[in-house]
Design a protein around this nucleic acid. Structure first.
Lengths: 141, 141
DNA sequence: AATATAAATGCAAGTACTTGCATTTATATT
DNA sequence: AATATAAATGCAAGTACTTGCATTTATATT
């Protein structure tokens, strides 16, 4: 997804097209891989964009919950990595513990979950991430 | 599980039975529900146990990875809640977003995951939590 | 019982956000 | 074009750990 399309999405959701937000999205669309709040802050600082760290965090959070970004706990330490969402369908991620590679999976456990396990509950959502060692990293350690 | 059994497990794993660790485990075995690092710290401070916050965090982390405690991201904000593990079998948790109630589920998505989604990967593990609104909380909001 | 050693602790400093609030800014309305 | 308003920002202070390191302590070995 490119910046123009993203801006259309923002307008649809009554989210404003501000200078800091544009700089953040510009960096995200041009980034080669996944970024963290910290790496993005450092990148933008280099460009003298002068954007506060809290503004970056709030935008990454907001853009993720708006479905414009994907958010993954790559190192399973609660520090999230973000990237522009390229897949519209609901999905989860498979993460290599060794090289940090992130791949989408269309499998969602909620669909497979027998309702007896969650009987009486409404508004079900889940958090699901799979960690492993990818083919390229096997034997390397 | 009571303190005696836990201490046997600790010895088996070459983990020492120290005064701070005993105070933490004593509090955990007597706690009515789930505790956080912060709530446990405050509880122990009240008892004048004089245990450093970092010692509490390190123990909760270690005891979880040793299988003595369960650890759940109850409010999906990265702040974990812990409780003594009463179920030996591998399991995940179902959490009520409204009242915070935590229930075990024996379902594990890794068993259901089609291997085509993770082909080439080894040492698979997953993080899985389900959030919803429990029966008692429905209509309350 | 004395010694060795590996684990655990406490302290201080560091990390990665998060929140509250006053100010600014983008967009809709007149 | 001026005004209203709701969203977004920047700053400062707060939160919840986390890490490095010197010191202490529990257990195994002699």
């Amino acid at each position: 997804m490119d910046l123009k399309q993203i801006n259309q999405q923002l307008s649809k959701k009554n989210l404003k097209i501000t200078r800091p937000r544009q700089a953040i999205l510009e960096a995200l669309t041009h980034a080669s891989g996944w970024v963290t709040a910290k790496s993005l802050f450092e990148e933008l600082a280099k460009q003298q964009a002068n954007i506060d760290f809290s503004t970056i965090c709030r935008n990454l959070e907001l853009l993720s919950s708006s479905g414009i970004l994907c958010r993954v706990d790559r190192d399973s330490n609660g520090i999230f990595a973000y990237s522009v969402r390229e897949i519209e369908e609901h999905h989860h991620h498979l993460i290599c513990r060794s090289c940090g590679k992130i791949s989408p999976m269309d499998f969602c456990p909620l669909q497979e979950l027998n309702s007896s396990q969650t009987s009486g509950y409404s508004n079900l959502e889940c958090r699901f991430e799979v960690y492993g060692c990818c083919q390229a990293c096997q034997g390397k350690e």
